[in-house]
Structure formats: C-alpha cells, structure tokens
Computed example of a mutant assay.
Amino acid sequence: MFNQLALSFLLSGLVAVLAYWRGSLAPSGVAGALLVGTIICGLGGWVWGILLALFFVSSSLLSHYKEREKQAVAEKFDKGHQRDLGQVLANGGGGALVALIYGIFPSSWWFLLFLGIMGTVTADTWATELGTLSKRPPRLITTGRIVPVGSSGGISLFGTAVSFMGGLLIGLTAGLLTQMNLVGLTITGGIGGLAGSLCDSFLGATVQQIYYCDVCEKETEKKAHCGQPTRPIRGWGWMNNDVVNFLSSFFGGGTAVLVYSLLVT
C-alpha cells in the first residue's frame, strides 16, 4: 500500500502542478488536489483515481469553453474557475472521505457511493459550465419562476440534460473499468449525478446564503461585489456554495447506492 500511496502522491502532484500552470487551480487548490488525489487513488485504487481525473479534466476543459460568453454570469458566483482549497475539498473531499473508509473497511458499496459522488460533482459542474449557455432562461427549481442566468437554484432543460450526461460518463467509465454490471453502473452514474445536481439546485434556491449588491442591483453569492460589501438577503450564513456542493455530492452518492441495489437485485 505504501508504494501505491507514494506513486499516487507523485502523480497527483504532477497533475496539480500542471493544473496550476494552466490556471485551473489556485495555490491553495494545489495542496487540496494533492491531498484528495493521493487519498482517492492511493486507498481506493486506480479506477477511483481515473474517475477523479475524468471529473477534474473534463470540468477544467469546460471551464475554459466560451469564457467570454460566460464572463458576465461568472460575476455572480462566489468563486471563479481557478479552484481554491475550499472548492477542491467541496468537490473531491467527499470522495476522499469514502476512499479513506474503504481503505479501512473494504466493500463494493463504498465504490458505489464514490461513483455517485463523482457523478454528482461532474454533473453539477457540467450543468454550470454549459447550462449557462442555454438559449432559454432558467427557472427556479422550487417555483418554476424565470430567473436570470446564473441564479442559484435556477435550472434549464439543457442544463439538466447536460448534468445527466456528465453522470452517465462517470458511470460508463466505471463500468468499462470494472467487472461490475456495465449497464447498471452507467444508469447509476447518470441518475445519481442528476439527483445530486438537482439537490444542489434545491439547496441553492432555499438555504444557500445569497447576497444583494446595491451598486448593480443584482443578487450574488459574493460577500463583496462592484468593490462594495453586499448584504445578505436569504439563506443560512454558513451555507455557502462549497458546503452546498459537499452535501449534494453525498445525496447523489446515496442515490447511486439505492439505484444500483434496485437494478441488480
């Protein structure tokens, strides 16, 4: 196990440095990626590491896709495309925790939970990066009311379809790399990822802390906007976007375990 951890540390460090050089990671994000990558690949195994890499690479590439068109929308988000420690732990911390438990108490069920977590963070990131390019305005998941693009809790048909595709990719890859049920894992990844992504939107529409900028008169996830402090208008003070992502990933993971158990039994 020591050799696998050491090799995982070296590979994770290489990926993290390259991602920093490409502008996908902030300095604190490099440390987070090194920690998460070493634990997941070192304790979970190479299949786990490949799924993590698939999420990270695809998400990083999509974050740079049509950046100019997404620039105005990105102003609403708490953080940008250069992921810091909080973002890395929010997206990969759940998977690292599951890999740690798996290393102590091995069971195929932990892999299914990890699959759902990776499916969720992939689905949610894809929906954010591509869903904002939808030609139709999003609607609030709780009421169906039309909201501005980039609003927390806003979903669109295109964004929802994209999120499902992201989860399917994770599930399909897992099925191709393991001896488990290929169709079952593919469907599990799709449904688990979609469920987690929708949970993220629901939390964003209900309990995530949202602020209002009096300068530009727009809602935002940021505590400061247009060079001025913003004021909270709804949500819980501790429920920022990173916490929402972390909690939603486990919802998607739990959904994946349930879906797969229903499909194969």
Rank of each mutant, 00 (worst) to 15 (best):
I117T: 03
L176T: 09
V149K: 15
G159Q: 02
G227L: 13
L11M: 07
S108G: 14
M239E: 06
G80W: 04
G252Q: 07
L5C: 10
L89W: 14
F246M: 12
L263K: 11
L182C: 11
V147I: 13
I141W: 04
N245G: 10
M1V: 09
T160D: 08
M239P: 06
H225M: 08
P138Y: 09
D242G: 12
G254I: 03
P232T: 07
L176R: 15
H64L: 15
K135Y: 05
V88D: 06
G167L: 04
Q228C: 11
L52K: 02
D78A: 15
A31W: 11
L112I: 11
D214H: 14
C199H: 05
P27E: 13
I39G: 00
T188I: 09
I40W: 00
L168T: 05
L172K: 11
F251S: 12
G175A: 12
G166T: 07
N91Q: 14
C199F: 10
L247A: 15
M118P: 00
T160H: 12
L25F: 09
K223M: 09
V30I: 15
V147T: 07
V36R: 00
E219P: 01
G154Y: 09
F56E: 01
C213S: 13
V215S: 15
A205C: 05
F158P: 00
A224Q: 14
H81P: 10
R139A: 06
P106R: 15
I50P: 00
W236K: 12
T178K: 00
L194T: 04
G254V: 03
H225I: 06
F111E: 00
A26C: 09
V88N: 04
R139Q: 09
V264H: 10
G92R: 00
H225P: 06
G37D: 01
T142F: 07
I155V: 15
L247I: 15
L11K: 03
L133W: 04
F164G: 02
L5E: 10
S59H: 04
Y211K: 06
V47F: 02
A72C: 03
C216N: 12
R139W: 12
I117N: 03
N91E: 13
C41I: 10
G42E: 00
L113G: 10
E217T: 10
T125C: 10
S151Y: 09
D214V: 05
G42A: 05
L54Q: 03
